[in-house]
């Protein structure tokens, strides 16, 4: 058993970690190249870079925006992300492993803080899983990996928590450690090839949309005006009440706008 543990934290971890780092680098590079190519191919090169930057930075901390619409979900998600990033990077035991392997180390977080964060993260992961599974709209939008990820992360955190706390005998400790290590390796490998790639692609997503779909500022209003729905919150009205959309404005106005 200890040989399997050593293999999991030795060669297998190196493989998984390198696949994650290089894989993430690869998709960033491919995306950037894709953006540049799409931009060059466009005949219309007006891109609202400032609006893109504002959108990107705004969504990096979604608290302010999501707070109003879905406060419980956004808070859970925020807690989940904080725990997910802070615990693996700053757990003192992990830092010690890095120091042993590479000689580099950074300050670890105090153990009580790590304990509470771990429990919060597990709770948040289960909450997110349930929120997805028991909401009809969310279920319709979900793929297999959307269910697998919260469950997988909760399992890894739980196994790690048990290893560091319960007064397990040597055998039980090794079993839980084996689960912890191999699941963690699996997670590292899966990161660049599943939706977790958003950890590096999120800053680029707005730019991709802007270049590929050419949403210049005010484009939505102009589309609405062209269709004859100027100044009418058509989507909101439809979504909330299910009522029929208001009658389009006279064609003449639309023609005038297009001529402009």
């Amino acid at each position: 058993m200890s040989a399997w543990i050593e293999f999991g934290r030795g060669p297998l971890f190196r493989l998984a970690f390198c696949l994650m780092v290089l894989g993430l680098l690869r998709i960033v590079l491919l995306t950037v190249v894709g953006i540049v190519e799409a931009y060059r191919r466009n005949s219309d090169r007006i891109v609202p870079w400032k609006a893109v930057a504002r959108q990107t930075l705004g969504w990096l901390v979604p608290a302010g925006r999501l707070w109003r619409a879905r406060p419980v979900y956004s808070t859970t998600s925020l807690v989940f992300h904080v725990g997910l990033l802070a615990v693996p990077f700053f757990l003192a035991a992990h830092v010690l492993l890095w120091r042993g392997a590479t000689g580099f180390a950074w300050p670890g977080m105090p153990q009580p803080l790590a304990d509470w964060l771990t429990l919060l993260t597990i709770a948040a992961a289960l909450g997110l899983f349930c929120g997805r599974a028991f909401h009809r709209g969310a279920r319709a939008l979900s793929r297999l990996q959307d269910y697998v990820w919260p469950a997988l992360l909760a399992a890894v955190f739980a196994a790690g928590y048990i290893c560091s706390h319960a007064g397990l005998g040597a055998k039980a400790y090794q079993q839980f450690m084996l689960v912890h290590i191999y699941l963690a390796d699996l997670i590292l490998v899966m990161i660049p090839f599943t939706k977790i790639a958003h950890c590096v692609l999120a800053p680029l997503s707005q730019a991709v949309t802007a270049v590929a779909w050419k949403f210049v500022p005010g484009a939505g209003d102009r589309v609405a005006a062209t269709l004859g729905y100027a100044n009418s919150p058509v989507w909101v009205a439809q979504a909330r009440s299910g009522a029929a959309p208001p009658a389009p404005a006279p064609k003449a106005a639309a023609k005038e706008l297009v001529a402009k």
Partner: peptide
């Protein structure tokens, strides 16, 4: 190791510390 002394971690390492 289970084949050796079969000690739990906490028998030597204090709880709440790395």
């Amino acid at each position: 190791s289970p084949e050796g002394a079969h000690l739990a971690c906490t028998q030597c390492h204090p709880a709440g510390q790395p």
